[in-house]
């Protein structure tokens, strides 16, 4: 187990190095000069040149790249071209809001997904379960920007139950619509794997043995089936949560949610290189770490994987 974890941790550095390099190269080939975003509609060439020097954009590519690597290695993400603020500060400001949205969306997705999948797989409520699964499938099939606007229309304008948009200092009322909108992305797949996990586990030898031993349905479900069905759910939670943490651009834009996704898009539109690079690196690191955590959690949920994983 420890060897496995150590090996995985060692792969983080090259991935992040790759992300930094790719981001840097992408910045260079993107059309659109960053200084143009700073000067407005009426400017002269001398001003452009001066700004270029001030931002260090006149240095050769290799020098800028090495500079940036050096600073990143010292955990210095630099300052925004546009606002002059430290990139780390902007990220620190936005991340908690994105994390709140991502966490709530994931929670909703897991609760309803497992509920739907579980109900659909067995026993007394198969039709309720199938209906719920159908709803989750429709949810994941609606374009998110349309879904968001429809929800605003229904719940805010027509019914007047919830505020249409905004962060509202993180209060629950403001969180519901964007979190539900975002949660649909994962809910369907969670419901699906839960259902097949339940069905599969129910057919496994050890469950049959447990049943044969006379254990009640509840115990079997809790102890064995749930545990085994959990693994694919954790896999989905890992990848999806990892990517939500990087910000969800459309959901954030529709609901005026001031998170990381909008920061990244805004910086792309303004060609604010330091912010793009810093934010991308940050979200990539989160993604990798979340996935590492998921890998480790397999071993905790099911010890059999640990032994198998040790050999890999």
């Amino acid at each position: 187990m420890i060897r496995f974890v150590a090996r995985r941790i060692l792969t983080i550095a090259p991935i992040l190095f790759g992300v930094v390099t790719v981001t840097f190269l992408v910045m260079q080939v993107l059309p659109g000069d960053p200084v143009l975003a700073l000067v407005g509609e009426r400017y002269d060439e001398a001003t452009l040149a001066r700004l270029r020097t001030e931002l260090g954009l006149d240095k050769p590519l290799a020098v800028r790249y090495l500079d940036y690597l050096g600073r990143v290695a010292r955990l210095d993400l630099g300052r925004s071209f546009v606002t002059g603020r430290p990139v780390a500060e902007s990220i620190a400001e936005r991340f908690p809001r994105t994390a709140l949205l991502a966490g709530s969306a994931m929670l909703i997705a897991v609760v309803f997904g497992v509920l739907a999948g579980g109900l659909a797989s067995r026993g007394r409520h198969p039709w309720t379960g199938r209906l719920l699964m159908g709803i989750t499938l429709v949810g994941v099939s609606i374009p998110v920007f349309w879904l968001g606007l429809l929800l605003i229309h229904l719940f805010a304008l027509r019914l007047g139950l919830l505020p249409p948009s905004g962060y509202g200092g993180g209060s629950l009322r403001y969180l519901i619509l964007p979190a539900v909108t975002l949660s649909f992305a994962s809910m369907a797949s969670i419901a699906r794997v839960t259902r097949s996990g339940f069905l599969d586990a129910a057919g496994e030898d050890f469950v049959r043995t447990a049943r044969a031993k006379g254990l009640g349905d509840g115990t079997v479900l809790g102890k064995h089936v749930l545990r085994n069905a959990l693994i694919p759910v954790v896999t989905i939670v890992g990848t999806d949560f990892g990517s939500y943490l990087g910000g969800s651009v459309l959901t954030e834009s529709i609901f005026g949610w001031p998170g990381l996704g909008r920061l990244i898009v805004q910086s792309i539109l303004r060609r604010d290189f330091p912010v793009i690079q810093g934010a991308v690196l940050f979200t990539a690191a989160l993604f990798v770490i979340v996935n590492l955590a998921v890998d480790i959690s397999y071993g905790i949920i099911d010890p059999r994987i640990r032994s198998a994983g040790g050999g890999g």
């Binding site: 792969t11 090259p14 991935i15 992040l16 790759g18 992300v19 790719v22 981001t23 992408v26 080939v29 993107l30 990848t239 990517s243 990087g246 910000g247 651009v249 996704g261 990244i264 898009v265 792309i268 793009i276 991308v280 979200t283 990539a284 690191a285 993604f287 990798v288």
Partner: peptide, 17 residues
């Protein structure tokens, strides 16, 4: 590793680029 990098990279930025 290239696949890992692609995964870790925000889809939108890649698409816009």
């Amino acid at each position: 590793r290239l696949a890992d990098v692609t995964f870790a990279f925000p889809t939108l930025l890649l698409l816009i680029a």
